[in-house]
Design a binder for these strands. Structure first.
Lengths: 331, 331
DNA sequence: CTAAAAGCCTTAAACGTTTAAGTCAATCGA
DNA sequence: TCGATTGACTTAAACGTTTAAGGCTTTTAG
């Protein structure tokens, strides 16, 4: 009874029958293989078109073993980091003829696992994975299918991530060049490698050139802890470096409530260049993460692996660049 | 040569062979059908586990005709409207056992078409579609597979959208209740039904109670046209109603550049309650669109159609609600 | 005690493709 | 003229499942 109202699609055999040739012949012309006379080719194509034939990929896949699909697992689409990534992965995959299954793990590593398992049952030929945590929750699927992890180098995987350390350095250079010598830092959770690297890159470059007056940790979130809010009353620093743009936007907001003007009274810099960064008031000076390139490269690398490209796991790292807007002024 | 380094997965026949039973028996126990002795059940399950068997959905699908997958087509993941929707669709689909293929049409109706075609070739059992334009670009796939369109009622489709008209009214009520009597409006492109409805809902309620001093059109975008920017110099209106939150954020920004304070000098209201709305300064008073519910309902309805539920096309409309934050003050 | 029913398992066909191998006729080269 | 090659097409098996039909063996009912 299910689907009863929807038409069942014509098959390759239907074409064969109508055109009076064998199924094999139809398959050959539709795939441009074998040798078939121009006459028959034309006939087959015509009947295919006439009856509205469309290939059945799943039948095709049973025979060839190729589903031409990949899976994308990411932690939370609501985080503005991921839509761009997903878009790029899908677009690059599509260009290579692959469709992409989407799985939002909601930050749950158990869901990540189940998702990967489900994907593999569905025959995906590879997975692009943006891990929710530092935990290698997909290790058991590793042998079944190539996996490219993005945003985080993970041992035993192909990995593509932004060069956070250099990005931190880039930001430090600019902060120094603009004359700032007293700096407050609100870093992301240092248990996350991505948070640690951007911090270290920044700090290492600052070292000896200026003073880091204080450094506190906060979630990668707009909500600031009480400890952080207290630090915001410090009038000695001329700039506050934030672990990411969320924190920076939260800081600008909190500063605004405290009656301190950005960047007049104190400058603020972020990290990532999420879409909102351009539209805060003032617009955020930040380090741009190449979201789109990240996704494109991940999908492209994955496809290469699928096509059999060997070699050791790559750990590709993409350059970041400084985006200067209004939230930091000369000091 | 491709995939040579990845293990080929054990099949149901492998289990059968090892356990010394027929493939049919294995299938029966794995699917909980037929009648199989407890003994054999145990044996089969054990061997399945031992050799790390995982069902091959594509083989299964050739036989059953059910791929347990649906497609999701949307115009632009970068638009903050869609990530939440996608998340909800995926989540609800997953709960029903369905996986979802993602396709970002980039606003191109040709891509929409190709995407749908590709999906159908891949055997999706249904499609959730968020049209990029008012154009019914998927009409030809309509007969193949159930399609639920979201955000826009479209004739001959099941449709789920927010009740924009009522939402507009809700906003008008609040604006009036707060004492505003002179209103400027920056509406979205009136060729879009969603833009038109929210405008009409607002205007119809205002009518007779207050003055709409001016009304201009702008894209649903943060970038404002010159005409719009000129209007912003009008000191007569006490509130500016915007077609969506993007426009509202752009307006707050432009007003800020003009030296006018929001909401002290003039109030601003948006529409949609995109995630950024809460974090602008001041935070936006707006009408919340039930993104998550929209996605959930769409997926659930689609699944019901897939399972064979008949009946005429539904045109479900979801209530919106007012979210009061700081961008509008009493007048 | 026997016929019918129930329980447990197998056989084999089917789903819509692809593709290796084979057939047959026409063409070619010497 | 004849064997070999080429060209055009077909046959049939295979991919990994599901499932209707059937065949034993054991249990049940009368």
């Amino acid at each position: 009874m299910a689907k009863s109202t929807y038409r069942s699609r014509p098959t390759l055999r239907d074409i064969a029958h109508i055109a009076g040739v064998s199924a094999a012949t139809v398959s050959y012309v539709l795939n441009g293989k074998g040798s078939v006379s121009a006459e028959v080719q034309k006939l087959v194509r015509k009947t295919a078109k006439d009856i509205g034939y469309r290939a059945n990929y799943v039948a095709k896949a049973t025979r060839t073993g190729q589903t031409l699909s990949i899976g994308l697992i990411l932690p939370d689409l609501k985080n503005p980091f991921f839509p761009q990534l997903a878009q790029a992965v899908q677009s690059a995959a599509r260009a290579a003829g692959y469709a992409v299954f989407l799985m939002d793990s909601q930050g749950d590593i158990e869901v990540e696992r189940e998702g990967a398992e489900d994907f593999i049952s569905r025959g995906v030929e590879g997975i692009v994975w943006c891990p929710a945590t530092e935990h290698d929750s997909l290790s058991e699927y590793h042998a079944d299918v190539p996996i490219v992890v993005v945003d985080r180098p993970l041992p035993n995987y192909d990995a593509i991530s932004s060069d956070y350390y250099s990005g931190g350095g880039l930001l430090a250079d600019y902060v120094l060049a603009q004359g700032h010598r007293h700096i407050g830092m609100i870093v992301g959770p240092q248990s996350l490698s991505s948070a640690k690297q951007r911090r270290d890159g920044f700090v290492d470059r600052i070292k000896g050139c200026a003073e880091i007056d204080w450094e506190v940790e906060n979630d990668f979130s707009i909500e600031l802890s009480d400890e952080v809010r207290r630090q915001l009353n410090d009038f000695d620093v001329s700039v506050i470096g934030c672990g990411n743009d969320f924190i920076a936007i939260g800081v600008i907001r909190a500063l605004h409530e405290l009656g301190r003007r950005v960047p007049k009274d104190v400058s603020v810099v972020g990290f990532d260049d999420i879409p909102w960064a351009a539209f805060s008031i003032p617009a955020l000076t930040t380090i741009r993460q190449p979201f789109t390139k990240l996704g494109n490269e991940a999908a492209t690398l994955l496809v290469r692996r699928i096509l059999g490209e060997g070699g050791p796991h790559v750990n590709m790292t993409l350059g970041m660049r400084l985006v200067t807007r209004g939230s930091l002024s000369r000091h």
